[in-house]
Computed example of a mutant assay.
Amino acid sequence: MIRKLRTGQYRLYSKKTDPKTGKRRNLGTFATRSEAEQHERAVQYFKHHH
């Protein structure tokens, strides 16, 4: 899940909330949306191939 920040950067959040904090886990902040999308795909890949 990608959200645009007020700074103009994009942040990738986990889809599920973190049980410890009750918030979504921040999976990285990126300068461009395409970078964030690429990382999101990489995260999905690792989730399903280990």
Rank of each mutant, 00 (worst) to 15 (best):
K4D: 05
F30A: 02
L27H: 05
T21G: 11
F46C: 02
Y45H: 11
T21H: 09
E40D: 06
K4H: 08
V43S: 02
H39K: 12
G8A: 03
R41L: 09
G22L: 13
E40G: 07
K47V: 01
T7Y: 07
R33G: 04
S34E: 12
H48I: 01
V43W: 01
F46S: 00
P19Q: 06
I2D: 01
K15D: 12
H49D: 00
R11S: 07
H48W: 01
L12P: 03
Y13W: 15
K4G: 13
Q44C: 08
A36K: 01
H48C: 09
K16Y: 10
Q38M: 14
K4E: 15
H48T: 06
L5W: 03
E40C: 10
H39Q: 08
V43Q: 02
F46M: 08
G8N: 04
Y13M: 14
Y10E: 00
V43G: 01
V43L: 04
K4A: 13
R25D: 05
D18R: 08
A42G: 01
R41P: 02
G22A: 14
V43D: 00
T7C: 15
A36F: 02
T29Y: 04
S14K: 05
H39I: 03
E37D: 09
K23H: 14
R3V: 08
Y10W: 15
R25T: 14
M1R: 10
P19V: 08
R41S: 06
T32W: 12
H48P: 00
Y10Q: 00
R24G: 02
Y10K: 02
R25P: 01
E35I: 05
G8D: 02
Q38K: 15
L12G: 01
T32E: 10
E37H: 06
Y10M: 04
I2S: 03
K16G: 07
L12R: 04
D18P: 05
D18W: 10
P19I: 06
S14T: 07
F30N: 01
E35D: 11
A42Y: 07
R41G: 04
D18N: 15
R24V: 03
K20S: 13
R33C: 13
M1W: 10
Y45L: 08
Y10H: 11
K23T: 05
K23R: 15
K15G: 08
T17H: 13
R25V: 11
A31P: 04
E35G: 07
R6C: 06
T29C: 14
F46H: 06
Q38H: 14
Q38R: 15
A31L: 15
F46V: 00
T32A: 10
Y45R: 05
T21I: 11
A31H: 06
N26L: 09
K15V: 07
Q44V: 06
Q44W: 08
Y13C: 11
R24H: 15
F30E: 03
R25I: 09
L27F: 04
T21N: 10
Q38V: 13
K15F: 07
E35Q: 14
Y45G: 00
A42N: 10
R24S: 07
H39G: 00
T32R: 14
H48F: 07
Q44R: 12
F30T: 04
H50T: 00
Q9K: 15
T17S: 13
R24W: 08
L27K: 06
S34Q: 11
P19W: 12
R11Y: 13
F30Q: 03
G28P: 04
